[in-house]
């Protein structure tokens, strides 16, 4: 351990009103704003520049709004429990602070579980683009969205591009009118008629690429926050014993980061799901 005393490690500086760590975390958050700023810029540029029909008119056509609403509530709750943990430390109640911290951690975990179900759902949902229109359910269509049946041959990925090779044929159950699944009759589409086939993963369209990149990066921030919270759940007691003030400050800084992650989601939710 170095023995150099760093000024304003605990004492707020009169100019900024913050101790070093808090000022540092705010600066870091400023850089994070620019990081997500670039991604929002990507979203705006690609969407404004897209030809009509390439982007869904409304995120709910593809994404699951009720689940995302639930997740928003979960994340907001985790934010309030985080700040409660800090408030408890300010009142010198270490025990209840650790309980609030644990609830925060569990909320974050719940958020990721919900996200996992949202993601896997997309990877099992397919779209087939056709070379020529064909009749499905009484309409001439150029593309079919739906789920592949169990009899449909397994899709193989191209080694060169990573995309699915065009299979010999697929059997697909088309979606209902409003994205509800599995109402129509399964259709068999020959490989010769298929222009492109993809699941609703990142490579499906610029919209889903943006969705997966933005929520994925946000998810990584959640994981990062969980690691830090877990660390304080485990060794918080030792730090608190050594210096209650230092521990309170660290939880405050963790909280600032955590609220920022919440804040990003508050913007991601309407932008990706509701527009």
């Amino acid at each position: 351990m170095s023995t150099t005393v760093i000024p304003h490690d605990l004492e707020p500086h009169p100019l900024t009103g913050m101790y070093n760590g808090k000022f540092g975390i705010w600066l870091f958050l400023a850089s994070e704003i620019m990081l997500f700023g670039a991604l929002f810029s990507t979203y705006v540029l690609l969407r404004v520049g897209a030809p009509p029909g390439q982007w869904p008119a409304h995120g709910s056509e593809i994404l699951n709004v009720p689940l995302a609403t639930l997740n928003t509530a979960v994340l907001i709750s985790s934010s309030v429990t985080m700040v409660m943990s800090w408030a408890a430390l300010k009142m010198k109640k270490f025990g209840s602070a650790q309980v609030w911290l644990t609830i925060t951690f569990l909320c974050a975990g719940a958020f990721l579980v919900v996200k996992y179900f949202e993601y896997t759902d997309k990877f099992h949902h397919y779209q087939v683009w056709l070379n020529d229109p064909m009749p499905v359910g009484g309409h001439e269509v150029t593309t079919i969205k739906g789920h592949l049946t169990a009899d449909s041959p397994k899709l193989e990925c191209s080694e060169k591009t990573g995309a699915f090779n065009i299979p010999e044929y697929v059997i697909i159950t088309p979606d209902g009118d409003h994205g509800s699944s599995g109402h129509g009759e399964a259709v068999r589409v020959e490989g010769s008629k298929i222009k492109r086939i993809s699941n609703f993963g990142p490579r499906h369209s610029p919209y889903l690429a943006t969705y997966f990149t933005m929520t994925g990066l946000h998810g990584l921030h959640i994981v990062g926050g969980m690691v830090v919270i877990l660390y304080f759940m485990l060794v918080g007691g030792a730090i608190w014993k050594r210096s209650p003030e230092k521990y309170t400050n660290r939880i405050e800084c963790t909280g600032l980061y955590w609220h920022f992650v919440d804040l990003v989601w508050i913007f991601l939710f309407p932008v990706l799901y509701l527009l």
């Binding site: 620019m34 700023g37 810029s41 705006v44 540029l45 404004v48 520049g49």
Partner: peptide
């Protein structure tokens, strides 16, 4: 960053 590239 958000608005100027869109002019493109």
């Amino acid at each position: 960053l958000l608005l100027i590239p869109v002019i493109t």
